[in-house]
Every structure is written in structure tokens, then in C-alpha cells.
Design a binder for these strands. Structure first.
Lengths: 126, 126
DNA sequence: GGTGCCGGTTACTTCAACGGTACCGGCGCC
DNA sequence: GGCGCCGGTACCGTTGAAGTAACCGGCACC
């Protein structure tokens, strides 16, 4: 035996409050990732965000922004002007997320081809 | 003016086939992340995976594994033994995802406290 | 012949996110 | 007075992942 037996996986491998599930951009919010990217270059207005986020409805954008605000990744600033102006910006905490996001984007750029090829191969074989 | 005006965001900022949406662990699959972690240490059997994935049903586990197999992140190997044995393992492609995942986990370990604090602060203020 | 293990499948239900359409108040402008 | 801009809200329908519960075939063991 040159190979040692694999340790069994313990039932408590993941704590009940497993942290990863709470990471903002990971939590099942379709647009969060793109919104982060839009705010990367500076504060943006609601209607300004709607331009690159093609197809998003104001409802979903408002919901997403509010969720990200709750998570402390985004600040909402209201200006007392006319017509009314509201700006959304990344918080320092939000900015710290850009690093890990870049890592994922780099992976995607490098390996997405293999992934799509695997999908086609799977279709072919089944 | 010491501050330059911010470039407006172009409507084509994100290509139609934006890659990030296709990253396996990012695509709305609740258990994918944990499954990756379970397979990190070596190949595992179906019933072996059910131990740490507390609360997962066989249906959802089978679905998740099949989706990850389609994406080329996991291989399924059937052995002609009795009782039947099936092993799931990470592919080389799947392993390349572990790096970016570690970056996200590190972020989570470091900043989850601030995130939860922000959520409480938001509750308090609204 | 009954029981258990293994790796699932099937049918049904639930739920949250998303999408579609319409509409709002307050102000300025013509 | 009518229209448009801004930053949304209200109501409703759709969708897809997840959860619930029951069951399956094949073989070994007793």
C-alpha cells in the first residue's frame, strides 16, 4: 500500500453559520457582481446604473442596492436638490471585495473555454 | 476643478455572454461550494458526501453533482463491484477553482464581522 | 423470504428572486 | 395645464432551485 486511506469527512466539517454563504456577491443575487463593477470607478446615480445593467428593472436594481447597503458594501447618499439626486458608492468594506472578485474573474477568463467545452462534451455523451 | 468628471458607464460594459455568470460555484447552486470543499481532499462516495453536507437530500446532491460534472469540475466514476460503488472527484479544471475560492474564504474570515455589524446597524437605523 | 446497503429516481410542494407593467410625488419648464 | 425628469413603489406573474416523502433494483447476508 503506497496509498494511505482517506480520512472520513466529519459531520461537523462546516459550522452551522458557515461564513461563505454570507458573502454579498455569492448570495444568489444575480446582479450584485455587476453592480460592484459599475461602482468600482466611483459613485453612480440610480439612472446611471441602469445603462450598463441592460435589462434590469428599477425594482430589481433598488432591491439589489438595498441588500448591498444592508451588507455594508454600498452607501446610499441623498442630495437635497432638484430634481432629486441619489448616489450609490462602494464603502471601504465593499472595496475589499474587489480583490477576491478579480481572482474569480481571472479564473473565468482563463478557464471558461474549458468549461464550455466540457458542457458540450457532456451533451454529446448523453 | 481639482476633480475630473466621471466617465459615464457605456451600455456595452458587460458583454452579452459575461463570463462570471458561468463560474460553477457562483451560479445559484447552494451546495456547490461545500461539495468542492468535500472533494478537495480526494475522491468521495455519494453516501460519504452526505455526512458533512448536513441536511442535503439525495435528490439535491445528485442534481448538484450532475451540474458540476457538466461543467467539467467533477468526474463521476462507477465501479463494477458489489454493492455498487460510485466515486466523485475533482477534475484538474475543478482544482483550479480552489485558488479563487480560497481568496473568497479569506475575505470572509477577515471581514464577515464587519458585514454582520453593518447588517445590525442597518436594522437599528430603519 | 425478509432485511439491509448502495446510489440513486419520481412526483409533488414551497419559496425567494426575478421579470413586466403600471404608476407615484415633487419640482421645473414651456 | 401639460409634459418630462428623477428615483423609485405596487401589484402580479414566472421560474428554477430546493425541500419532502416515498420508492426502486440488485445483491449479500441471515
Amino acid at each position: 500500500m503506497t496509498q494511505t486511506a482517506l480520512e472520513p469527512l466529519p459531520p461537523d466539517l462546516f459550522p452551522a453559520d458557515c461564513p461563505v454563504e454570507s458573502v454579498p456577491v455569492l448570495g444568489g443575487r444575480k446582479w450584485a457582481w455587476k453592480i460592484m463593477r459599475c461602482l468600482e470607478s466611483g459613485p453612480r446615480r440610480f439612472s446611471e446604473l441602469r445603462v450598463p445593467l441592460v435589462g434590469i428593472t428599477p425594482k430589481v436594481l433598488a432591491e439589489s442596492l438595498r441588500a448591498m447597503e444592508q451588507d455594508g458594501a454600498v452607501v446610499r447618499t441623498e442630495f437635497d436638490e432638484n430634481p432629486p439626486r441619489v448616489e450609490y458608492a462602494l464603502t471601504p468594506l465593499g472595496r475589499t471585495l474587489l480583490g477576491p472578485m478579480d481572482a474569480m474573474c481571472a479564473w473565468s477568463r482563463e478557464h471558461l473555454g474549458s468549461l464550455l467545452a466540457a458542457r458540450e462534451e457532456y451533451e454529446r455523451a448523453h
